[in-house]
Nucleic acid binder design. Structure first.
Length: 122
DNA sequence: CGTATGACGAGCC
DNA sequence: AGGCTCGCCATAC
């Protein structure tokens, strides 16, 4: 195994560990993950951690569910995909497969699907 | 070491 | 509600 991810700073690993706790069928926001990881204000850092997430990395015996991390608006954050697209289609498909419902505007109702793992209300 | 760059977010308008 | 600006934080160069 080429452990390129081991070169990443601990903060990324901490973020990946938090993301690994998001239950199936739930979503969490970048800011929420940042707070839960002990890095308030580090929402963009979470985005960066998702961006460099090693393909196929598993923590605690299961894959890191990167698709369950969406932005505070309930939308998939656009990113640059290899095919030139924004890469959000695949994420939405994965979420739908686990029962996440999208509203007409293509957004996820956070009051219904947000992970309350940190006991936070919304 | 200064600047640019983001899978962000809270405020304002 | 939707668009803009600005602040954040770690990385790239």
């Amino acid at each position: 195994m080429r452990d390129t991810h081991r070169r990443r700073p601990e903060i990324f690993h901490a973020i990946w560990r938090t993301v690994a706790r998001i239950p199936r069928g739930r979503v969490a926001t970048y800011g929420q993950i940042a707070r839960m990881t002990g890095a308030p204000g580090g929402a963009r850092t979470v985005g960066w951690a998702m961006r460099v997430l090693p393909d196929g990395l598993s923590i605690g015996g299961r894959d890191v569910p990167w698709h369950r991390v969406i932005n505070a608006l309930g939308r998939m954050s656009p990113r640059r995909a290899s095919d030139g697209g924004d890469g959000t289609a695949a994420q939405a498909r994965r979420l739908r497969l686990e029962g996440v419902v999208f509203e007409a505007g293509g957004r996820v109702d956070l009051s219904r699907h947000l992970w309350r793992g940190d006991r936070r209300r919304r």
